[in-house]
C-alpha cells in the first residue's frame, strides 16, 4: 500500500511540474525579484509626491507603477525600454536622469558650455598676463639700455595731449 502511495506522490509531483511550466512561460518565463524592480524604480520619481524616488514611495500610484515594472520585466523588457516607456507615457519629469532632448538638453549642454567658456576666459586672462609681463620686461630692458635724446616737439595737438597724459601731467 505504501509503495503505491509513494509511486502516486512521485508522479503527482511530476504532473504538477509539467502543468506549471507552460503557465510560467505564458507569464514571461522568468521570475523577477524585488531588487530588480527597485533597481529600475530608483531611476523614477513618484508622479504624485515631489522628489520622492519610486522605490521608497508608499503611495498607491507608486505601488501600481512598481507592479507595472514587475510585469514588464517578466515580459522580457529591458531597463532602457521600461524607462523609455515611463518617459513617453508620464513625461520626462518622472525620470531621475532626464534624456538629452528638448529643454532637458540644456542640463546636458550647459556644463560643457560653461567649461569651454570658462577655459576661454581663463586662457585669455593668462595670455594677457604673459603679454603684460613680457611688455614690462621689455620696457625695463629698454630703459636700462636707452640713450636719452630730446624728443622733437610735435605740432599735432592730439599727439601732444596723449604724450602729456602719458607723462601724467
Amino acid at each position: 500500500m505504501n509503495r503505491y502511495l509513494v509511486w502516486l506522490l512521485r508522479y503527482a509531483w511530476l504532473l504538477l511540474l509539467l502543468l506549471a511550466t507552460p503557465a510560467m512561460a505564458q507569464e514571461g518565463g522568468r521570475l523577477v525579484t524585488d531588487d530588480e524592480v527597485n533597481a529600475i524604480a530608483k531611476e523614477l520619481y513618484c508622479p504624485v509626491c515631489e522628489s520622492t524616488p519610486l522605490d521608497v514611495c508608499e503611495t498607491q500610484a507608486c505601488a501600481d507603477w512598481r507592479e507595472l515594472i514587475h510585469a514588464k520585466l517578466a515580459a522580457g523588457e529591458t531597463r532602457q525600454e521600461i524607462l523609455a516607456y515611463f518617459g513617453e507615457n508620464y513625461g520626462d519629469r518622472v525620470l531621475a536622469t532626464p534624456p538629452a532632448r528638448g529643454l532637458s538638453l540644456l542640463l546636458w549642454v550647459w556644463p560643457f558650455v560653461a567649461f569651454i567658456g570658462g577655459a576661454l576666459i581663463f586662457g585669455r586672462y593668462m595670455v594677457n598676463m604673459r603679454r603684460a609681463a613680457a611688455a614690462s620686461e621689455n620696457e625695463k630692458a629698454m630703459r636700462e639700455t636707452a640713450v636719452s635724446y630730446p624728443i622733437p616737439p610735435t605740432k599735432d595737438p592730439y599727439i601732444a595731449r596723449i604724450e602729456q597724459e602719458l607723462k601724467g601731467e
Partner: peptide
C-alpha cells in the same frame, strides 16, 4: 560667449 550665455538664459526663461 555672450551669444551662448544669452541663448541659454533665454531658453531657461522659456
Amino acid at each position: 560667449i555672450w551669444v551662448v550665455v544669452l541663448a541659454v538664459l533665454g531658453l531657461a526663461a522659456f
